[in-house]
Simulated scan of single mutants.
Amino acid sequence: MARDKSKQGRAAQIIQTYRLTKQSDPNLGWILLGTFAVVGVIAFAVLFFVLQGIVFPIVFGILFGTLAALMVFGRRAQKAAFAQIEGKPGAAAAALGMLKRGWKIEPMIAFNKQQDLVTRLVGPPGIVLIGEGSPNRLKQLMSSERRKHERVASETAIHEVYVGDGEGQVPLRKLGKHMTKMKRTLKPAEMTDVLQRLKALDANRSAVPLPKGPVPTSMKGMRGNLRGR
């Protein structure tokens, strides 16, 4: 019974993801149907020619068509999700929510009145300070945060990443991949100590209100929905 409820829950999540994606991608249904049909027919034709039968080509044609449609759905759903959060405060933290285990995200550790903000990511590359907003205004904010982090974690590599489509910036949709490609300098056993030091740093920050405006939620749930977990 519990397993049936779990399957129903996953199905509901996939349907919800489809509906949300279709809002910004109206032709999604036709694209998925076309992908299923084209790939399914090609797979059927190839297997029919090789096996000289009818049952297995039909079965595998359906399987290959479904798999291709799911892959296209996943990519378009992810693209739509990025389009919905891009430009909103905290978009970087939401995008980084798709990273697997072994990363610690702390959104909005610093910001200003113009809603330029800094998100912190701790993981295999060390400490990564991620700036969102105007590059010129962010320089002072990022420099201040770097000095604070160097005082409590001087032996840990500290990186600065600016989110955007300009020169020297990392597009939001490529942010997660950019992080995973960075050189690994922090071992899992060392991460606990670094996080404890940063916890002490954060405890000394003055309590100030978060910037106004919608803050997008993590995209990790969408990744799980598309994987059926």
Rank of each mutant, 00 (worst) to 15 (best):
A2D: 04
K5Q: 15
Q8C: 01
G9Q: 15
I15H: 13
Y18L: 10
R19Y: 12
T21M: 08
K22Y: 06
D25L: 05
L32C: 03
T35L: 03
F36Q: 03
V41H: 07
V41Y: 13
F44V: 03
V46E: 03
V46P: 00
L51V: 11
Q52F: 14
I54R: 10
I58E: 00
F60S: 07
G61V: 01
F64P: 00
T66G: 04
L67T: 05
L67P: 00
L67Y: 14
A68D: 00
A68C: 02
L70Y: 11
G74I: 05
Q78S: 12
Q78K: 14
Q78T: 14
A81L: 03
G90D: 02
L99Y: 09
R101A: 15
G102I: 08
P107Q: 08
K113H: 12
Q114Y: 14
Q114W: 14
Q115H: 14
L117M: 07
L117N: 09
R120C: 03
G123M: 07
P124A: 15
P124I: 11
N136F: 14
N136W: 11
R137T: 06
R137N: 12
R137V: 05
L141R: 01
M142K: 00
S143E: 10
V152Q: 04
H159Y: 12
E160R: 11
G166I: 09
G168I: 01
G168K: 15
Q169R: 15
L172C: 02
R173T: 09
K174L: 09
G176R: 06
K177P: 01
T180W: 07
T185S: 11
K187M: 13
E190P: 00
V194A: 04
V194K: 02
K199E: 10
L201R: 10
N204W: 06
R205F: 12
K212R: 12
V215Q: 11
P216K: 08
T217G: 13
G224F: 06
L226K: 05
R227P: 02
